[in-house]
Structures are given as C-alpha cells and as structure tokens.
Nucleic acid binder design. Structure first.
Lengths: 206, 206
DNA sequence: GGTAAAACCAAACGACCGTTTGAATCATAA
DNA sequence: TTATGATTCAAACGGTCGTTTGGTTTTACC
C-alpha cells in the first residue's frame, strides 16, 4: 500500500487510514503515521495543511464513490414497478460490502467509518453531514414510502438502529471470528445477507 | 454530582464518567478531570494508582449492579414455564434502560459503555471480559434454547448485531432528537420497546 | 543549461500529557 | 496535647504531541 511507486499524498492517506482504524483519530500520531508512510514528518502539514484536514480527505477519498454507488443503486431499485424493502436495504448495504472487499484498504476504511460514528467529534460530524447527509435523506424517504404504516418518528428510530447495526457489523466489531477455512469474501457476503434479512424483519415488525 | 458533600473518590469517579463520555478515555485529561471534580491533580494517582485503573473503577461502579440485574431478570424469565424471546431480550435491555434513567450519571455511563465498544482498547476489553464476560455467555445460551433452528454461527451473528444495535441505540448515538415536550423517561422507554420488537423480529426471521 | 516552483527534510517550538515528589494540612486515637 | 497516619497540595519531571521554520534537493519548463 505504501510502495514507493505511490505518491507522497497517497502513501500518507493509506497510512492514515490504517492507523485511524487501529488507534482512532486522536490516538494516531503524525510521527507514527509519517514513519509508516515513509515520508517526512512535515509532509502532512505541507500536503494537507493540518491533521484535521487529513482526516477529512481520508473520508472523501472513499465516501465520494460509496455515496454515488448507494444513490445509483437506490435509483435503480426505485425505478422498478414494485421495489421491495430488501432491495432498498441492499442498495444501502451492498456498496459497503463491496468496499469492505476492496483490495486496497477498503476493509480498513469501513473500520474508520465505525470510528467516526463512535467518536462524537463535532468537527468531523459537521464535515460528513455537509458532504454526505443528502444520501441518508434519500434512503429515509425510500423507506418511508415502503412503510406507510410507520409514523415519521417510528421510522427514524428504526433507520437509526439499522445504521448503527450496519456500521457495527460491517466493521467486524463483534466477537465472532470467521473460521480460518472460510474466505473473507464469503464471510462478508454472509454478514450482509444476515443483516438485510434481520433489518427487513425489524422494519416490518408490528 | 460533584457537590462538596461527596468524597474525593466519588467526585473523581463522577467527573471521570462525564468526561470519558464526552471526550473518550484518551481524550479526557487528568487536568481537566481534576478541575471538574474540584480536587488536586495528584488525587487521581493517590486514590486510584493510575489513569488506567481509574477507567476500570468507573466501569466497576456501574457494571456490578447492571450485570446482577440482567442475570437476575434472566433467571426469573427462564424459571417460567414458557419464556418468550421478548422476555429474554427485555432482561438484557431493561436494566440498561433503568441505568440510563438513573438520576446520578446513569445516562452518562451508558455513553461511556458505548465508547468502550467502539475503542478497541485491548487492556480495557480484557478487564471487561474477565469481569463480566459470563453475563453475555448466559444470554447466548438462553437465546440458543429459544432458537433451535439457528445453528451456532447464525445465532452468534444475530446476537452480535443486537448487542451493537443496543449499545448504539441506548447511547443515543444517532441523529434522532426527542421533541422537547417528550420527557427523557418516555423517550428512553420507547427506544427500548422499539429495540425489543425490532430485535425479536430479526432473531426470528427465516 | 538556467531558473522558478514544488517537494522534501532535520530541527526546533510551545503546549499538553500522566506521573512523581516532598512538604503542608487534616483527622484521629493515645 | 501530642503523635501518627491519611490526605491534600504546588511544583516539577520527562515525554509526546501538532505545527512551524528555514534551508536543501528535486522537478518541470523556456
């Protein structure tokens, strides 16, 4: 990931993703980060201006495509004559699954994403809300059309629980460990299947 | 919470809970913490030995009772002739709800609990697993007896998702904000009801 | 090949961190 | 009242942090 044929900026972003996932944003120091990326300590401030801005760029590098994929899939589903709840959920979950299978750091980034949920960093939340908040809004509208029996408050509760559970599950936060014989791909695909089935049942309940 | 009629140790524990919830364990400094508690900087190391041990004691103060309540409720439910899935879930969720309604920092502690899930702090995880791991094991066995059609792997997936979603929801991590007119108590009780219904449907699915 | 911009680098800055020290103060029992 | 142990306190220690500086090297273009 940090091979010499990558540019300095790319090596910094790769090392940042890895260390943010492992140690959190405050817990990852620029000294360890620049040593991992094999660049000078001052390179972060030279190329990104500050550590805070580096955090933003780590998210932008992945979320632009993740959000585009989710919205594109959602539009495909909503264009169908009779979209199902499972299809809408899949539009949300499947791009995250693909990202977690990405060969160059995608799985790591999903863990960084979970960090962002957990840390109530106001500055980061504002950045994410301003740049990617519209995606969640569109999914909320799609779910609402599928579940007219739920009032707005009830619907928000359930979507909220799903978003938290999805983040938790995709980041492999829990205790479960795949058997060594099971490939990472199958492991994650089963996770997504379980989550979709689980979430759809929970959304339809009552 | 930090009134002068509380002992130095109690004032430190109260301030620690508050600042750990707001800033995380590494993000809360002993200088800000002792200033909040109105005690001398050296008091933490004098009474608790180290910051790490203070973190442990913040958890012990609440988790001893939370775990006892959960196990007691679980035993009551399992003693019934026909325990339901909802009742087992309630045995897990309801004590956390009660804690979140506690007048003296319980709601704050639930947010600290969510921090512990999110931060992959190996030292803290070991402490929690050694002291409270048996609680989760007993609940897993109870769920397994209720869901014989699920193999062990499938069951663990679903329990894992529930534990994550519970932590997420109870800590009020999400975007939803209760209306000002709705009391905190009703807000939390509805959250627990929703979560139980949601989780039961997800566990029963397929 | 000369030149201006871009990139890189070692070193240092000031700030904050957890912890330790040793003396001052308090409580309590003889 | 005096002696003793528990507690509190201001001050300092060594270390790590993000950031800045000023000079050196590399790159790109006429």
């Amino acid at each position: 990931m940090n091979s010499p044929h990558f540019s300095t900026k790319e090596r910094i972003l790769g090392a940042a993703e890895e260390l943010f996932a492992r140690n959190g944003f405050a817990g990852a120091s620029l000294r360890e980060l620049t040593a991992t990326a094999k660049v000078n300590l001052a390179a972060v401030n030279y190329h990104f201006g500050s550590k805070d801005n580096l955090v933003n760029e780590v998210f932008r590098r992945r979320l632009d495509e993740l959000s585009a994929q989710r919205l594109h899939l959602l539009q495909s589903v909503l264009a169908k004559p009779k979209p199902t709840l499972e299809e809408i959920l899949a539009a949300f979950i499947h791009p995250a699954l693909l990202l977690s299978l990405d060969k160059s750091g995608g799985a790591t980034f999903v863990r960084v994403l979970a960090r962002a949920y957990a840390e109530h960093n106001e500055r980061l939340r504002k950045f994410l809300s301003e740049n990617y908040g519209h995606v969640l809004k569109e999914f909320a509208a799609a779910f609402g059309a599928q579940l007219p029996h739920l009032d707005k408050e009830e619907l928000y509760w359930r979507i909220d629980i799903i978003a938290g559970a999805l983040t938790y599950a995709m980041a492999d936060f829990g205790v479960i460990k795949r058997r060594a014989a099971m490939s990472e791909k199958i492991h994650r695909e089963r996770a997504a299947e379980h989550l979709i089935r689980f979430a759809a049942a929970g959304l339809r309940a009552e």
